[in-house]
Write a protein that binds this DNA or RNA. Structure first.
Lengths: 198, 198
DNA sequence: CACGTAAGCGGAATCGATTCCGTTTACGGG
DNA sequence: CCCGTAAACGGAATCGATTCCGCTTACGTG
């Protein structure tokens, strides 16, 4: 009786498990920072964290899940800024301006984290969670800025242009500069937020 | 003397090599048609083609290369139609209409071949060759239809929305129907081809 | 037709991701 | 403090992709 509301239906993480989670994230963070996600194997991480490979998988599901956990750390700031930060990323100004800021900010993240994002993409959490957040964010802005386009679809379309694999193709294979990509985004936002033909 | 112009600087493919190429493509085509690219391993293909795995790799480079070769077969028609077929896919009508037709046609290809396209995406040939073709095609249409947007960038942006991984996300995860995707594409094309604010 | 050689061959070996399973450990209850 | 049990461990086993390498064969030449 007098029980507290049952959040945390899961029996709470065991102390050793929590310690290992930290170790793994720390080790993985260091290794990835040193040589890039693509040259770090799961066994490398396990060894550096003094942990068996099984522990990596129990904790993070798979390689994509680990990449996602790493990414989440380094991206939370951006997400918070979207929701509750100061303009132009956060609320308080016209949606069109926030769309521009979102593009610039996301492209900036991509510049640093695109390879990690590519590695995290197959993760279930990624697809369901973060992408959903960005998609919702864009949809809400678009509802205000482009009454003549389907906001739900258009949000996804814009997200496609911020796909990390696509970004790497643009930057490395096709030789676009970051500035050109920002300019391209801005042009597109202007085009879809312009008043349609009278 | 009196030599013919030296195209085919490569000494021509050996007879047994050509035979094996056919065998492999045939076997792979059957297996993929039966159970989908994702449940077919390189060894499955090698066995079905009565060939060593080494032969697969010498001929196609890697899994993505094999997927690409398979795809190319099943896609050549579409590519030809773009360049020399009858309208609305081929030339002869206003660019805006051809942009709509391109989207509908490509989405139709995706409906059938998206998983194969995902598998082919890492291939060097894919990135350089076919994507380049589509990108060029779109660029040319956009030059005519959207004088106020950078055609080169916009072509790539539109291609991002036809990315096979993105398409699978829209269809399977987010539950969009093919019709909705076509409608979304059409709306976007209309938006960017509309006369900008007077 | 016999020969030389480069191209092609097959399948064993290697490498990394992921799964399995017998053993160890944290920790709530007695 | 002692026990029982579920959670967590670690690393061996498995699986598929890719590489390696010693052997075979097509085919241009004499």
């Amino acid at each position: 009786m007098f029980e507290l509301p049952q959040f945390q239906e899961q029996p709470r993480e065991r102390a050793d498990a929590a310690r290992n989670r930290e170790r793994i994230l720390a080790a993985a963070g260091t290794l990835v920072a040193e040589s890039g996600i693509d040259s770090v194997s799961m066994e490398d991480v396990a060894k550096a964290a003094c942990v068996g490979t099984g522990t990596l998988y129990r904790r993070f599901g798979d390689r994509a899940g680990l990449a996602f956990a790493l990414l989440d750390d380094q991206t939370k700031d951006f997400q918070d800024a979207l929701i509750a930060g100061p303009p132009p990323l956060g609320p308080g100004i016209p949606a069109a301006q926030r769309l521009h800021a979102f593009g610039a900010g996301f492209l900036d993240l991509l510049e640093t984290h695109a390879p990690l994002m590519v590695a995290a993409a197959p993760s279930v959490k990624e697809s369901a969670g973060v992408l959903g957040l960005y998609s919702t964010h864009l949809r809400i802005l678009l509802e205000e800025a482009t009454p003549h386009l389907d906001p739900r679809y258009t949000a996804e379309a814009l997200l496609a242009m911020l796909d990390p694999a696509y970004h790497l193709r643009m930057r490395r294979l096709l030789g676009y500069s970051l500035d050109q990509l920002v300019a391209g985004w801005d042009g597109l936002i202007d085009a879809i937020t312009a008043t349609p033909r009278p």
